[in-house]
Design a protein around this nucleic acid. Sequence first.
DNA 1: GCAATGACGCTCT
DNA 2: CAGAGCGCCATTG
Length: 124
Amino acid sequence: MKNTGIYTRIYRVVKRIPKGRVATYGQVASLAGMAGHARQVGYALYALPEGTEIPWHRVINAKGMISSRSEPVSEEKQRLLLEAEGICFNEEKRLRFNRYRWHPGAKKAGLKNPTAIELVCFPD
DNA sequence: GCAATGACGCTCT
DNA sequence: CAGAGCGCCATTG
């Protein structure tokens, strides 16, 4: 398989996603230096092994939903993983984007956003 | 090496 | 606001 470098970049970005936060494929692609190539991000994650340390479950599509893949089972798995981090879905099966969106580089002291894990299922 | 596929996103209708 | 189409390019057959 050999790291084409692209994978490494993508994985690195995904690893940077704080716990309790989510990012879109496009966002990850952009941060990886491949803006507009969201597909490749998904492809890279698809190649990840099961016991990987990469928080792939924190990566979702632009609609704020879990992308359907070959194994629908893994889909629910991702949902569980996200919920385990304090992220919940609304009735539309959509993720509370505005709340959990990851802000790269916003680690400034002023960041009042708690690790989402604290704002568990906060009501609208 | 060519053709098909895909865990997506943006634009147009 | 929702649905359909096109583009992006690495990986696989």
